[in-house]
Amino acid sequence: MSNIVLKNISHAYAKEKVLDQVNFSIEEGELLTLLGPSGCGKTTILRIIAGFIIPDEGTVANGEKDITAWTPESRNMGIVFQNYALFPNMSVRDNIAYGLKIRKKDKTSIRDKCEQYMELTGLLEYQNRKVNELSGGQQQRVAIARALAIEPQMLLLDEPMSNLDVSLRTKMREEIRAIQKKTGITTLFITHDQQEALSISDRIAVMQKGRILKMGTPKEIYDDPGQDFVADFVGTSNHIGGAVLESLLGRRIADSVSVCVRPEQIQLSRDKGNGILVTVKEVKFMGMYFEYTVVSAQKEEYRIVEINLGKIYHEWHVNDRAYMTVDNIGDMVGGYE
């Protein structure tokens, strides 16, 4: 069953169009991520779903009901803001109870719900603290518990990890995913971090300049980005065309054809095979893998990633000459011809 459906949504700020004919739906219980660079319109979509913005064009529907003009307070959406927006004049418990008090729940039910969500988010021991006495990670948990306590139709997460350090981000995204799976709540997650999007989502929608370019599961987005922007934004990619592509294929092709190849799909070898000769320009040791930049005779640069297999691994050095081959290059080109 479709949960939230956006149809033909367009919106402009002071005549500058930020959303252009956006269409998508969020299925019940799924975690959909809107991924894109700053200013691409992802937060505007979240604010339209939340009811803070009424779009210039298009509709937002909850199942069969058109909720486009509904006020934020009547939509029953739980939001976790980038800066958490916790009420500084209230304790952890009061923040979580806030939405329940508005719903005029009885005291027992408020207490039980607060405890349930504080336990879920590991906040029981901090319940009487003021929110500004908590760490960033704890504050984020309060924001999530507060949003979940009202048992919302949907959870909206607006770049909630952007204020956390790298190690805490990884931990928190695992926790968010676990909570989402446990509660089964439909979730919209906003981020510009591709790793975050790939690791947490059921589906990803990649956005650029107010449009959704590609939508699919993380694997679909990564393996078959379809467009150069998506390929570049989600992971790293090499664009191979012209004489280099002809050499790799061993035949002539149309000038307009080029393929997008991930760094891990390219190999370096001492044996010629079907490869083309390249020179190693730069070597970066990243621990688990090596990242090489190589240059072809046509002066085109490619990035290659090879797993570090320890002592048995043959490491390449700057100015080494090697043959570059690409997995299944023929199949990739087949799609374009």
């Binding site: 803070f52 934020p72 029953n76 939001i79 009420f87 004049n89 508005i102 719903r103 949003a147 009202i150």
Partner: peptide, 20 residues
Amino acid sequence: NLEEASRSLGADMFYTFVHV
């Protein structure tokens, strides 16, 4: 965002003004 958080939790403008 404080005001928006309050409204998303179901509070109207008056309740948000008084309590937040």
